[in-house]
Structures are given as structure tokens and as C-alpha cells.
Design a protein around this nucleic acid. Structure first.
Lengths: 293, 293
DNA sequence: TTCCGTTACGATACACGTAAAAATC
DNA sequence: GATTTTTACGTGTATCGTAACGGAA
């Protein structure tokens, strides 16, 4: 992100109509994420030249330079990084339109509720108990509920701040709880009344696990890679990792784990979230039911 | 919206890839809004046949019937009305990506604040006084600030609940005030301590004005059509209309108007709103400044 | 030289317009 | 018979792929 000066293209004639197509946005996001025309073209299952031309066309259309071309790839200009964020939102909105329309025409257009598998079990069972009417529960991995809600595959989701981003959704807080660290049974520190995050982070031989990012890749670090809760509990039992999690999850742990409160870990708030323009009575009822529990 | 039964198209072969293009969404919105292929094609400056084909392609792609075709036009299916709402949001998001990218690359990428001309004058001048750095104020007509914020032409807006819809934005309340009815000076009811909305609505010879809808058309009714505040005050002076408005607007009225509180009219809250994914420090600063006033 | 992005060119596919047909009131 | 939508057909534009070119490390 070096401070370039002239990102606005001179308008030297051409068809500068404002009709940006989703295809162009998809192409741009691919190139921006790969920082490389070649890899992006491969990911898009096409050749580089048309991709290159499409990006040029987009830049001409917008009158803005989006990428710095270098010898070993591309980097985003300031305007380019703005477009990356905005294009993702726009593409999600288009995708959401598609999915919501399909589901509106489905044989049984029930409310789809997305939640992380394992989390909020008690809340969920009470909710489904009180509100039986046609609620399809989708249990998914970490971060997935938010994605499903954004791309229209779900109507409502149970999210967990601060892990999930609730920006752009309407939300109601349902429950707040403190976090604990889960250790293998018999660990030397298992009897401590509480631990700090600093102490947890420096537990020798017990690194925190690495969860996948939204794009599926894993951050660097010493901890083992985990994709779901089952993997995690097993790793803890094996003495290969510890984990900080909301204390309600203790109900799903066996006797071979020890639990110690971590007062300075951020509290986790379970919220029910829905798209702000939802006109669905079913969603409103579901939210109201959840709040009353 | 007659209760049809089979809105899901049989998948009889074809390229059902999920690549919905904005062009298709634009076409669909036009047809849905016009309820008529011919008028929609005219509005889109194209012939009907390609429009008809494009809609068919969209329906095939989604696997959903969007329109009921009748002899004098079309009506939306349930799925179609869902798509209409979602497509508008998606198109706004695409447009926003376009505008925000352009402005990010502009020579002077200052914060653009949209507000209704005439409203919140004192607040606005205090805000600009406290926060001089590169704030471009766009004064616009009723309903416009919300639109500008949604389509990316503005970064922040001053909106007025319940008149504006703040759904999908992050907001902070700035100020709440009661509403008053403005009458021509010397009106028989000008000396009353207060009036009810029921009384205001039945003022003989003094109908409430009609404001334009988002699409520019006017609702039916007895009152005069108005597009801005100047027209309105003039009509009131002439004794052709009355108006219910926040009491702070009295500062902009001349001596030839009388004001009577209307306790049961909904209170108007001025809020500062911004897109929920805004990462701009300038916007955050501006919001904080506004709150502190 | 090697890797990467761009330009050139020919072929295919897509979208459009005009004209004619089918369908509904 | 009057609308309105749909099908048919020919044309033009735009996108794509292959191949050749230009530049930076």
C-alpha cells in the first residue's frame, strides 16, 4: 500500500456507463485475494488474458486504478481495497437474493436457523420446544452461521460475540457468559481458582488451537489445527492443546477435562441475529420466543 | 397474489449455474415495478423480446417462477416479491461499491455527509464548527439522505425517525423532539394549547400535503403536492395546507405562521447513521463529535 | 533467463432488434 | 379484435482461448 498519487484515470473516451456486472466483481475479488492474475485465472477456470482485460474494463468503467502491477504479482491500491470490501458485500447481497428467492418458492418455506454445532444446546432445545413450527436448524462449523445469514442460506442465526461479527444485522442479546480454560484432567494448574489469559498463553506444551479463517486457511502458530469441537476435545484429552471457551460448553465435556475460569478473557454473548430488512413474521416470532426464554 | 401451487420449475436440463448478473436483476426490478414487459422495456430503452428472454433465463437459473403472466401485464409470485426486495438491496450494494470506490480514489476523499435541507440546522452548524476537516455536506430533499447512504454516494447521514428507515445502518440517536402543526397565522385553531392528529386530519380546507414516494410518484389524496420545504411554507402562508413537523423547524418559519403542539404525533428522533461496515476513522470521529454536542 | 502481465487475433457465444405467432381477455 | 407475451431468425457485440509480445527481477 505505497502512497501512490494518481489513482484516477484520465477519461480519454470510452463507454463509461455505470453498469458494473457481478462477473467483473467476482473476477476482481479473485485477483485481489490471490494477488496474482495467473492463480486467479486458474481459480476462475479461465485463461489470464480475458481476466486481465476484464479488470482493465472495470478500471476504465470506474475511472480508477485498482491494482499496482508488479513483476511478481499485483497489490491493491487504496481504492482497490475499498472495492474488495464493497464487492464482497455486494456479491453476498446478490447471492442472498438468489438463495432467499429459491427458498421462498420451496415446497416447505420454513425458517432456517443457523447455529454453531455444539453451542447453545440448552437454549436451542428450549427454543425448538417452544417454537416447533417449521424451523430448520442448520448446525455448522465456527464462523459458518454468520456466512449463511449473509449469503441468504439462513433466515436467523445464533451468533457469539465477539467471535462473530454482527455488523449489518439486527440482533438481540440472549445470554452472556464468562469463559474458562479447558485443561486435561490432572494438569498441574487444574486446581487453580482462576487463570489469566497471559498464563494460558504461556502454558508450555499446551498451545491454543488454530481455527480456520473464513477462506479456509489456517494462521501460523504452534497450536494444532482444528475444524470442530470434537477434534478439539480429543486433542485436549490427549494433552496436546488447551482451549478457552464459554463455560456452558463444559456440559459437553467428559470427566477427563478440568476447567478453570479465566476472568480476563472477554465474555461471550450469545445473540440471535437476522437480516435487517426481514419482513418475515415467522422470524419475528422466533426472535420474540428466544428473548422470552 | 393468488395461491398458485407449483412455483418451482422442473429442472429439465440447462445451465443452472448460480451466476446471476446485475443486468438480470435490473431487468427484473423494472418489470416488477412496471408490472408490464412493454413499459419496462421502454424504461430500459430496449425491445420487449430480449427482456422477456432475460427474465425467462433468470427464472430458469433460479428454478423459480417469478411472474404470473396475464393478458394485461404481470403480477409477482410470492418468490418474485422476495426477489424484488432482495434485488433492490443487491443492486444498491453494487452501486455502493462503485461509488465508494470512485470516491476513495478521488483527489480529495473527504467524508460526505447527507442531510435533509433545512433540518437540524443548528446541529449541523455546530457539527461543522467542531469538525472542520474535509466534510462535504450534501443538502437534499426528503428521503434522499437515506438513499445516498444506501447507494454509497454518502458516508454518513442525518436521518429522522420514523420518517427515514434506518434498517441496515449503524446509528446513534442525537436528539428527540415533539411535533407541532403549522397553521396560517390567524387560523381559528391557532390559539388552542394543543391539537390531536385526528383534529389535524380533519381540518376543513387545510389538508396535509403529499410528499413524493421514493419512485417520485405521489400518493392520492386531497392535499397539494410538495417537493421541498419552501413550497410547503408558502402553501401554508397561502392558507392551502397545514403541516405537521418537528418543532425545531419553527425557527425557519416567518411570522405569518402559527404553531400548535400535537402531543399524539410521533416524536421525531434525529439520528446520525453510517454503513455498518465502515472502517473509516473519519466517520467514527464525526459520529463521536456529533454525539458530544 | 524466467516469471508475470499485456496485446493481437480468430472463433464462439451471448444479447439485441425486427418480424411473425400464440395466448388471453 | 384488441392487448400482451412469446418464439423465430438474422446481426452485431463481447467474451473467451491460443499465441505472440513487453518488462521487471
Amino acid at each position: 500500500m505505497d502512497g501512490d498519487t494518481a489513482p484516477v484515470l484520465p477519461l480519454v473516451g470510452g463507454a463509461y456507463d455505470g453498469a458494473v456486472e457481478t462477473r467483473e466483481l467476482r473476477y476482481f475479488v479473485a485477483v485481489a485475494e490471490e494477488s496474482h492474475f495467473g492463480r486467479a485465472a486458474q481459480r476462475l477456470a479461465m485463461a489470464q488474458p480475458p481476466l486481465s482485460r476484464a479488470i482493465q474494463q472495470l478500471e476504465r468503467r470506474l475511472g480508477v486504478v485498482l491494482l499496482h502491477r508488479t513483476a511478481r504479482g499485483v497489490t491493491l491500491t487504496e481504492a482497490g481495497s475499498v472495492l474488495l470490501r464493497e464487492a464482497r458485500l455486494a456479491l453476498e447481497a446478490v447471492e442472498a437474493a438468489e438463495h432467499r428467492t429459491r427458498r421462498a418458492a420451496a415446497d416447505r418455506p420454513g425458517v432456517v436457523l443457523a447455529t454453531k454445532a455444539g453451542a447453545s444446546r440448552e437454549l436451542l432445545s428450549k427454543l425448538l420446544d417452544a417454537y416447533v413450527d417449521a424451523v430448520d436448524v442448520v448446525l455448522c462449523g465456527p464462523g459458518e452461521p454468520e456466512r449463511l445469514l449473509r449469503n441468504g442460506r439462513a433466515d436467523v442465526a445464533l451468533l457469539h460475540r465477539p467471535y462473530d461479527t454482527t455488523a449489518g444485522f439486527d440482533t438481540e442479546d440472549l445470554h452472556t457468559e464468562r469463559q474458562v480454560v479447558v485443561l486435561p484432567a490432572g494438569h498441574p494448574l487444574a486446581d487453580r481458582p482462576h487463570l489469566s489469559m497471559a498464563e494460558v498463553n504461556t502454558l508450555t506444551g499446551l498451545p491454543l488451537p488454530r481455527w480456520p479463517r473464513r477462506d479456509g486457511s489456517y494462521p501460523d502458530g504452534p497450536g494444532p489445527q482444528v475444524r470442530d469441537h470434537t477434534q478439539l476435545t480429543q486433542l485436549i484429552t490427549l494433552g496436546r492443546a488447551c482451549a478457552v471457551m464459554p463455560e456452558s460448553l463444559r456440559a459437553q465435556l467428559g470427566d477427563d477435562h478440568a476447567i478453570v475460569p479465566v476472568p480476563d478473557a472477554p465474555a461471550v454473548t450469545t445473540v440471535i441475529a437476522w437480516p435487517p430488512h426481514s419482513r418475515s413474521k415467522a422470524v419475528a416470532d422466533l426472535v420474540r420466543t428466544a428473548q422470552s426464554l
